[in-house]
């Protein structure tokens, strides 16, 4: 579905990502773990076309998208639920969700997906006319995920969906991710909570200071002593 080859992202002189290669196959749930500043967010932003790519290639469904603008990437079925949620605080919950479906022309399908998101997160239905800026952190995260789902994506990229949330809400969000995975949505998940991510994922990449340090099946990663020591604090 998506292949990243030798990706280098640089902000001015600082290389945040250096020669990263990774791949997510159709229907897979792949997680990207690593410490703060490892380059996870930059990698996702590069796939979405909003990070400064110095070198390397990004290929989606066999087509190179490295230089395409973000709206062209969305048009190819990629949705990005960004770190820090980035919901539009001055827009209502429903307007935020509708923006997730910005490029879609099938209004019947959009309506259907709206109902689906409201079914997944009933809280959003209750607050649909409220400004997103007035929601709690957990509700905003649900909104950000719901908004990403509204494009009916084939590849869903989630950046730290559990960050700063109460355990109960984290559980809720991860069960939704699990459910989407079972429905066949391809998922690339960036997560601080490595244990949770590795339990859920098919495969994992470990990023360290901008480079891929380890890659392999998630179940093996959980047992890898290096990973246990560095990311599972065991």
């Amino acid at each position: 579905m998506v292949r990243v080859e030798g990706l280098t992202v640089a902000y001015g002189g600082i290389e945040a990502v250096r020669g990263v290669s990774l791949e997510v196959a159709e229907g897979e749930l792949v997680t990207l773990i690593g410490n703060n500043g490892a380059g996870k967010t930059s990698t996702l932003m590069a796939i979405s076309g909003v990070a400064p790519i110095r070198s390397g290639r990004i290929v989606i469904d066999g087509e190179e998208t490295t230089k395409l603008p973000p709206h062209a990437i969305v048009a190819r079925g990629v949705a990005h639920c960004p770190e820090g949620r980035l919901v539009f605080g001055r827009l209502t919950v429903q307007e935020n969700l509708r923006l997730g479906a910005y490029q879609r022309k099938d209004s019947a399908g959009v309506k259907q997906d709206l109902d689906r998101v409201y079914a997944l997160f009933p809280r959003l239905l209750e607050r649909r006319t409220q400004l997103a800026g007035t929601l709690s952190g957990g509700e905003q995260q649900m909104l950000a995920i719901g908004r990403a789902l509204m494009s009916r994506p084939r590849l869903l990229m989630l950046d730290e969906p559990s960050l700063g949330l109460a355990p109960l809400i984290v559980q809720r969000i991860f069960s939704v991710i699990q459910q989407l995975h079972e429905e066949g949505v391809t998922i690339l998940l960036v997560e601080q909570n490595a244990h949770l991510a590795l339990t859920l994922a098919d495969r994992a990449y470990v990023l360290e200071t901008g480079e891929v340090r380890l890659a392999g099946p998630a179940k093996q990663m959980i047992d890898n002593p290096e990973v246990r020591k560095a990311y599972l604090s065991q």
Binding site: V50, P70, L86, V87, F88, S151
Partner: peptide, 14 residues
């Protein structure tokens, strides 16, 4: 209105 509030997030919406 979305783009005025957060340009990057708006671009991620397509």
């Amino acid at each position: 209105r979305a783009a005025a509030e957060n340009l990057r997030a708006a671009r991620l919406m397509g």
